[in-house]
Amino acid sequence: MAQTPTIARGGNSSAPARGPRNRAARTRRLSPRAIPYLLLVPCLLVIAALLLYPLVQMLQMSFQEVGLRQFRARNPLPAEFVGVDNFRQVLESELFWTSLRNTVLFALVAVTMTLVFGTLVGLLMHKLGPKMSIFVVVGTMAAWAVPPTAQAIIWKWQFDADAGIVNWALNLLPDWLSQAVFGRADWTGQPWLNDTLSIYFVLVVAVVWASFPFIAVSVLAGLKSIPSELYEAARVDGAGAVRTFWKITFPLLRPVFAVLVVLSMIWDFKVFTQLFLLAGGTNMPRDAFNLSVWSYVEAFNPPADMGLGAAIAIVLTVILLLITSVYVRQIVKSEDVR
């Protein structure tokens, strides 16, 4: 693809001989070598001004004291350099360990469950007849399309203490079973969104529900690209379903899984909207914070401490960039950027 001359290179040695005069004149006016750079200028400006510059600024702020005194209307103080004070404060805060624990554990559980369930549904979609397969794909699309704010609201409603359908369904369990498994028979009025563990339980359910369709459809797309002869050969050789998956499907789809794992990690590590809304906004219990919410609360809730918020965000970004480098390498390796 790189070797064939493109129209865009019209100004190179071969072009003037090919076309009418006026074009040669036009290309002389604007050096063709400059064209791609000119086309990139607006995009680069946006990226530089709104993504890279803020990133640098955030790094700078994490070493500064940027609080109320810097924002008051009358003679605001300049931001003061405080060295690693913010980071020390982050590491010494007991909120750091709870929110780091919440972030990491939630990501691990949610990513694992999303991937396992999504893959199983993808395999199921592949096995089903054509009509049934489309039926399931369209159904999962409904969950996938719901905006994150609405996801939170939908699940908040289903887990509502008094009129929620989950408590109604749990009440249907025979009393002896409910008693034996959960130690209680009556679920009416059970609040799900008051303590950290059950908030995260609901969050996992909501996130898995909203993100398994993407995994399932991606796996389905991958499965369709595997030649069916391989499966026939496996069947002839008497391989079972599990063995077929690990020996044929998984190795062939390894690159797809690599990208799916990393994307899910990124999404689940920084989950904000769903957690923030499910747990009740800034009034949520402090030990339910994850790193994103904690950073937001420190930076924007009075007394606002933006330097501290920035330091927390830096910690989150570093973790994410480490994970991301795997994804970037995978894409660069697959020759897609060359």
């Binding site: 790189a2 493109t6 129209i7 865009a8 290179r9 070598r33 064209i35 791609p36 750079y37 086309l39 990139l40 680069l44 990226i47 993504l51 890279l52 510059y53 803020p54 990133l55 600024q57 955030m58 702020m61 990124i266 590590f269 920084k270 904000f272 994103s292 950073s295 937001y296 930076a299 933006m306 918020g309 920035a310 965000a313 830096i314 989150l316 970004t317 994410l320 960039l321 991301t324 994804y327 970037v328 894409i331 660069v332 950027v337 060359r338």
Partner: peptide, 28 residues
């Protein structure tokens, strides 16, 4: 459509900025 210097660098830049959590850019 064009081959130019820094093309690969630009694409890698795109990938990386896509991965910066927007929540982290909130404060600046």
């Amino acid at each position: 459509r064009f081959r130019f210097r820094f093309r690969t660098s630009f694409l890698i830049l795109l990938l990386i900025v896509q991965m910066i959590p927007s929540e982290a850019l909130l404060i600046p």
